[in-house]
Amino acid sequence: MVGVHGETMYIEIRNLTVKYKDITALENIDLRIEGPGLIQVLGPNGAGKSTLLRSIAGLVKPQKGCVCINGKDTTANPRLAGRSIGYVAQKPEVSKYSTITVREFLCYSYMIRRQRWPRPPCRKLLSSNELFINEDILDRKLTELSGGQLMKTYIARSLMSAPSILLLDEPLGPMDPASKLEFADIINMLSKERLVLVTSHDPIILLEYTDRILLLNKRLIALGSPSEVLREEILSKAYGRGFREVEYHIHLFDSHY
């Protein structure tokens, strides 16, 4: 429950219901998760995975219920949630006329959180580069990046506020197989000191690093260790007939390791 920096990190959700007009995205979710560690959020399309992450970040207003982070009620309060949380959306969008470079993007994210003058210069900030971003893309515009490079940039950006909780919505989606493996390592490393929630449609890549799996389909279906959750009778509750696909991958995984 206590991270390397001595911070506590836990998320408590009580009776959370989120609706978009007449569509119910989440219904009566109750859960408590603690870090550090890696939690995979699984569920079929439209299960409410993104909505859950956005609710935790305070970015959506629930119809009912509340979200507490480290004991503070942060429901629909991104400003308060943002003190502990770094968040990367499923499909970050960049205006096609935007001229912002990767370097500026990272620096601005850091600087807008510090209102003190004079502001620290950008170059200094990025010189100690633990950011797993290739030097040669630092001066490219965001509009000049590929999907995978853009996702890496957004993940690096989410670290600029030194969050104890990271919410990554399908971070491995746009990445090639080699980057997926590279990123699985990075996510593993990040989850050593932080509580990291990752949504995905393919639990296998991160499975060996995963502490718990949260299975969702509007309602919370299961929350437990991979061996507790990745079982036929439980998966079929979320995926219906589609679970065989997931199960097939898991067998593959079992035979490999």
């Binding site: 970015l59 601005y108 807008i112």
Partner: peptide, 19 residues
């Protein structure tokens, strides 16, 4: 300008930053 550009580039993070 910097804040406005940042809002335009990543509105979710701008909200988390408390802008």
């Amino acid at each position: 300008g910097r804040e406005i550009i940042y809002i335009g580039s990543d509105i979710d993070d701008a909200r988390l930053a408390g802008l």
